[in-house]
């Protein structure tokens, strides 16, 4: 009897999960499509259909759909997926629901790395320097974060260390931009601190895409290790998990995906916090399943947010990072109130 019930449970489990992933995949596809159809110009459905029917349709519509909106939507997918995936991976590894690339300073450090390559002229010498700079900044941040507030560090340490690291990286970014002989330095600073996807091109996609995908590949094999870590480090190790391998894979995976994403989009906070939290209950809290669900959820949410910034404000487009912070920060406060009891 118990055997059949366990099997039944397994099937039911799988069923619920299929529904969740079905919904998420549909959400990503739908958001991607809408992302192609929405923008300041009137180009929309009719133009898209006309373009699919005849590729030599009006050049303006073609350029807008293919060269402006498509790379933007693809980047939204990649950047959002990275944020969700890295958020879920960091939370699983640190066993802390408040860990998130933006909050723990990884995004700010990646911005710093990218800005430094710009102002030392490295990015001018070879284009790959930009994402590599972002990745280097992110690696450094994850390392510092682990040293300051590793898995045993507790929530308070994690958040305080994150604030310190973020502020420091932002200050250095400001310094770098202040020293640069650029009259738009102040605006540039805002771009890097409040990410956005507007007017990104296939060049950005080519620069960041391969690194992001490598990061995804690394993070996605962490699933079972993160599951095992649910039982604590000791038990995870006796289950055959090599924690050193987990740590280096995590650091590299987060750095590659978030570093490269930030180098082309600027830092976008809270997506990595909100998405895993919302999805956790639907995957029975399993860190491995949460990983994949959060990647899709992050893509979906980021695409939706990026569509919203185009629709909300008339005139200058709202920064994507502003929107995610406006939605995410209150959410973060709520989460702090909920976890208040566990602080050490």
């Amino acid at each position: 009897m118990s055997i059949s019930s366990a099997e039944h449970r397994g099937a039911e489990h799988g069923h619920r999960q299929s529904i969740l992933f079905g919904v998420l995949i549909f959400g990503v596809l739908a958001a991607f499509l809408v992302s192609l159809l929405v923008g300041p110009s009137k180009v929309g459905w009719t133009e898209l259909i006309a373009l699919l029917a005849d590729p030599d349709v009006a050049p303006a519509a073609k350029q807008i759909l293919i060269e402006i909106r498509t790379p933007r939507a693809l980047l939204g997918f990649l950047v959002g997926g990275s944020l969700g995936l890295a958020g879920a991976a960091l939370q699983g590894y640190l066993r802390n629901p408040l860990a998130e690339p933006g909050l723990i300073g990884v995004s700010a450090s990646a911005s710093l790395g990218a800005v430094l390559t710009l102002h030392t002229g490295l990015a001018g010498l070879f284009a790959l320097a930009l994402p590599l700079g972002g990745i280097a900044g992110a690696i450094l941040a994850v390392f510092v974060m682990q040293a300051l507030a590793g898995a045993a560090g507790g929530t308070l340490r994690l958040i305080l260390a994150g604030i310190a690291l973020s502020s420091f990286a932002s200050a250095l970014t400001s310094l770098a931009l202040n020293l640069a002989p650029d009259p738009f330095a102040a605006m540039e600073m805002m771009f890097w601190m409040m990410g956005s996807l507007s007017d990104r091109s296939f060049e950005h996609l080519e620069l960041a895409g391969p690194f992001i995908l490598c990061g995804w590949a690394l993070l996605s094999v962490l699933g079972r290790s993160l599951d095992a870590l649910t039982l604590g480090e000791d038990t995870a190790r006796t289950l055959g998990i090599d924690l050193n391998w987990v740590r280096s894979t995590l650091v590299l995976g987060v750095a590659l995906s978030i570093g490269a994403a930030t180098a082309v989009a600027g830092s976008i906070s809270f997506v990595g916090l909100v998405v895993p939290h919302l999805l956790r209950r639907f995957v029975g809290s399993r860190p491995s399943t949460l990983l994949y669900a959060s990647a899709l959820g992050g893509s979906c949410l980021t695409l939706i947010a990026d569509i919203s910034v185009r629709l909300i404000a008339p005139g200058p487009e709202l920064k994507l990072g502003v929107l995610t912070a406006m939605v995410g920060a209150p959410f973060f406060l709520l989460l702090i109130m909920q976890t208040r009891g566990d602080w050490q």
């Binding site: 350029q63 605006m187 091109s201």
Partner: peptide, 20 residues
């Protein structure tokens, strides 16, 4: 002469503008 990665110049460095 601006650095290609500087975000302020992204509109002027965009391939769609070059195409136009």
């Amino acid at each position: 002469h601006a650095q290609r990665g500087l975000l302020a110049y992204r509109n002027l460095h965009h391939p769609a503008l070059a195409r136009l």
